[in-house]
Amino acid sequence: ESFERTINIAKGNSSLGMTVSANKDGLGMIVRSIIHGGAISRDGRIAIGDCILSINEESTISVTNAQARAMLRRHSLIGPDIKITYVP
C-alpha cells in the first residue's frame, strides 16, 4: 500500500542531488538517481523509484521530462529548504 508523504529537506547551500524523469502515466515524476553527498542522499528518506507528486506545493502531475528537470532546478535555487510530497 502506497501513500503520500510530505517532507521538508534542509539543503542549505548544497544541491538536492537527484535526477528525475516524467512518469509515463502522468502521475508526477520518478526519482532516477540520487547523488551521494547531496541533500536527498543525506536526508535518506527519498529513494530511487519513488514518485514525486509536488515540490514546494507545485504539482508535478502531467509534466514532461524537460519540465520535470526545469522544475527541480528552479526549486533547488529557492531558499535553504525544500518541501517534497512523494509516494515511496
Rank of each mutant, 00 (worst) to 15 (best):
A47S: 14
T19G: 09
G26C: 06
G28V: 00
R5T: 08
A70W: 07
S2H: 12
R69N: 15
K24H: 11
I35P: 05
D50R: 00
A22S: 11
S14M: 15
K11I: 12
N23T: 07
V31L: 02
S14N: 15
E57G: 15
L77A: 15
G49W: 02
S62P: 11
G12Y: 08
I34A: 00
I52C: 03
Q67R: 08
P80H: 12
S15H: 13
M71T: 09
N13R: 10
Q67H: 09
P80K: 15
N56H: 01
S21P: 00
G38L: 06
S62C: 13
L77N: 15
A39Q: 05
I52D: 03
I78T: 15
D43E: 02
I82L: 12
S76E: 15
I34W: 04
L77Y: 10
D81G: 08
R45F: 05
R74L: 05
L27G: 15
G79R: 08
L53Y: 07
L72S: 03
F3S: 12
A22D: 07
E4L: 10
S54A: 15
T19I: 12
N56P: 02
R5G: 03
Y86R: 01
S21Y: 10
R74K: 13
P80A: 13
V63F: 07
V20C: 14
N8G: 05
I30S: 08
V87N: 05
I84W: 03
V63R: 08
G26W: 04
N23R: 11
I48Y: 02
P80D: 13
E4M: 11
V87K: 09
T64A: 05
M29I: 12
N13L: 09
M29R: 02
R32S: 13
G28N: 02
I30T: 12
R73F: 11
I9N: 00
R42V: 11
A22N: 10
K11C: 12
S59F: 01
M29T: 06
I48M: 07
A68V: 07
V31Q: 03
I30M: 09
A70F: 06
N13A: 10
A22C: 11
D25M: 08
H75T: 10
R32E: 15
I35A: 15
N65D: 15
N23Y: 06
S15V: 11
V87Y: 08
S2R: 10
F3C: 13
Q67M: 07
V31K: 04
L72P: 03
R69L: 09
N23P: 11
D25R: 13
V63N: 05
E1S: 09
R32C: 12
P88G: 07
G49S: 01
T19D: 12
H75Q: 11
V20A: 08
S33N: 14
L53M: 12
L72G: 02
S76D: 15
D50V: 02
V31S: 00
G44V: 03
E58S: 05
I35G: 11
R74S: 08
R74V: 06
N56Y: 02
G17D: 03
S59L: 06
S62K: 14
I9K: 01
G28S: 03
E1V: 09
A22Q: 13
A70R: 13
P88C: 08
I55W: 00
V31P: 02
G17T: 03
L77H: 15
S54Y: 09
S59I: 05
R32L: 07
G26L: 02
E4W: 08
S2P: 08
I40A: 06
T85E: 05
G28A: 00
G17F: 00
G44P: 03
R45P: 00
T6F: 04
G28R: 02
D25N: 15
D81P: 06
K11H: 12
T6C: 08
R73L: 11
E4F: 13
I46C: 00
L72A: 05
G49C: 00
K83A: 08
A66P: 08
S59Y: 04
L77E: 15
H36R: 14
D81S: 12
I7C: 04
G37H: 06
S21G: 11
T19K: 11
S21F: 07
L53A: 03
I30L: 08
R73T: 14
P80V: 10
F3Q: 10
A68T: 04
L27E: 14
I7V: 08
F3M: 15
A10T: 14
V31H: 04
I30A: 05
S15K: 14
G38E: 12
S59E: 07
K83P: 04
A10R: 14
S14E: 13
I7A: 05
G28Y: 04
S41R: 06
L77S: 12
I35L: 10
K24A: 12
L16H: 02
A70C: 09
Q67E: 14
I48T: 11
Q67F: 05
A47F: 06
